[in-house]
Design a binder for these strands. Structure first.
Length: 208
DNA sequence: GGCCAGGTGTAAA
DNA sequence: TTTACACATGGC
């Protein structure tokens, strides 16, 4: 069975650097993490473009914006009422901490994020890793599916997070690239239904 | 038309 | 402690 390190090297060779997270600012990364919850990134881009057009890519603008207006702008991402409220809560807390940079520098950042209603482990870890640049492994639905198919291991969020963190050097750049590569593999060949295993370039490493 | 997409919270079994 | 369901738009 391939080690996680070997899998990483193979994925990097196969797909190349993914250059995650897409976004021009820390705040854009943070709201993108909320907006992409259970929705394809394609939809998120529309919403971010809408916010950009309104010059609303700042905690202050999001906090002050009329709720109905915010909902309208992020509608393409689905669950827009919940997500608008989540963006408002996060923005309020960022302002309370006097800005994005100081918010991200809090020592208990992950716990702070998890205390926000609407931010669960994946969204929190995405923000910690991609905006905070602090090494924490992000686990998403693709990661769970890939681990199950490649390693026959079915675990909860924390189990799978530990599975990777215990087998790799604690390095933000590695975690960054690895998660992005797992998503790329997942999107192309490990979809929930109709997996294209025959076309998968690394199906020989998979027990599925 | 049906299923899925870079999840989360709540409530029942 | 697990499982089910609501939340909602857009692509294939």
């Amino acid at each position: 069975m391939v080690s996680t390190k070997e899998l990483f090297d193979i994925l990097l060779d196969t797909f190349g650097p993914q250059n995650w997270w897409p976004g021009d600012s820390k705040f854009e990364i943070m709201i993108g993490a909320i907006l992409t919850q259970n929705v394809s990134w394609r939809n998120v881009e529309k919403a971010i473009d809408n916010l950009k057009r309104e010059d609303a890519l700042s905690p202050d603008a999001v906090y002050k914006m009329d709720l109905e207006r915010l909902e309208e702008l992020i509608k393409p991402t689905g669950f827009y009422r919940q997500k608008a409220a989540r963006l408002k809560r996060l923005s309020k807390l960022i302002l309370k901490e006097r800005g994005v940079d100081s918010y991200l520098q809090q020592k208990d950042l992950r716990e702070q994020l998890l205390d926000i209603k609407g931010i669960g482990p994946e969204t929190a870890d995405s923000i910690v890793l991609y905006a905070g640049e602090i090494p924490t492994f992000v686990v998403d639905a693709y990661t769970k599916r890939i681990v199950e198919r490649f390693y026959g291991f079915k675990g909860n969020y924390e189990d799978i997070k530990e599975f990777f963190q215990k087998s790799l050097l604690k390095d933000a750049e590695t975690y960054n690239e690895f998660h992005a590569l797992l998503v790329e593999l997942g999107k192309k060949y490990c979809k929930k239904t109709g997996p294209r295993c025959g076309e998968c370039p690394i199906s020989h490493l998979c027990s599925y």
